[in-house]
Design a protein around this nucleic acid. Sequence first.
DNA 1: GGTATGTTTGCGAACGATTTGCATTATGAT
DNA 2: ATCATAATGCAAATCGTTCGCAAACATACC
Lengths: 152, 152
Amino acid sequence: MTSRLEALCLEKGLKMTGQRRVISQVLSEADDHPDVEEVHRRAVVIDPRISIATVYRTMRLLEDAQVIEKVDLGDGRARYEEASTDHHHHLIDTRNGRIIEFASPELEALKERIARELGYRIVGHRLEIYGIPLGADGNDDADEPVDKGVPV
Amino acid sequence: MTSRLEALCLEKGLKMTGQRRVISQVLSEADDHPDVEEVHRRAVVIDPRISIATVYRTMRLLEDAQVIEKVDLGDGRARYEEASTDHHHHLIDTRNGRIIEFASPELEALKERIARELGYRIVGHRLEIYGIPLGADGNDDADEPVDKGVPV
DNA sequence: GGTATGTTTGCGAACGATTTGCATTATGAT
DNA sequence: ATCATAATGCAAATCGTTCGCAAACATACC
Ligand SMILES: [Mn+2]
Ligand SMILES: [Mn+2]
Ligand SMILES: [Zn+2]
Ligand SMILES: [Zn+2]
């Protein structure tokens, strides 16, 4: 019954409350990039006495503890994913918000080289690509389910 | 006396008000990536009867007219630069916020290739690198002037 | 140059995402 | 079971940004 993230939290010595357990479970079961409202929505299904403020606080806690990572996908809100996933970036289908994950060693190497040539050591970076499927010019299925992220 | 951006606005047939002239001048003279508050601060020096709301509205107008471009550098606010500059990305010095511009044809090509392999046509993309100078481990001059952007 | 018409402005209020103060409740260690 | 400390819920505050509305303005027309 203890979720993957709950175990991680215990390892890190975080005090485990009921709401933290539920949020950990929600995040463990998520295979997409939910924002805080979405996490709250899913958490409330499991236990209705969880406030949005607690979700905000817990997300920050888990982020600080490096259990989850914030992803900025360009819409106004913060989205999250498990930190244990391999490093990757996101291609956002602008027709419907669907997110495709990808990794590229060449890209990582190139970015290192660019920074080095500018005399810098990289401490972080961000890359997103926005696109539409090849050969799709209309805005078909503009209302399909969103962010069925595919694990990298 | 008519600034570069003011000329552009006239070409596009925008109604030229006093405040739009001033904001155009401020943006024409900027060689960095000011946010709206900063544009307002600079505008007020030239003519004190310019409200922040008008700056917000004018930035959006100029962005829609493709006279300026919004840059998201990861701090909470929107920053802007002239749209006429060549395509480039930003390396942010995390010690002091200084911004270094760079362009990389290899990077652009690679990104195209990645998207194509995923079956997508790119409609936009974003990349920023955060770093500290090679051989700088302390946080020296953490309060120097910020964002002396170097034209690409 | 005056005048009508539609735009733009300034102000403050509204906004959406996130954080925070504070009184209440729960956790984990005795 | 007790207790000190940390976490929660709620509402109010914050930050960047947008919006409604009445007043001021730009431009086209006489
Ligand atoms: Mn991801
Ligand atoms: Mn730039
Ligand atoms: Zn990367
Ligand atoms: Zn690029």
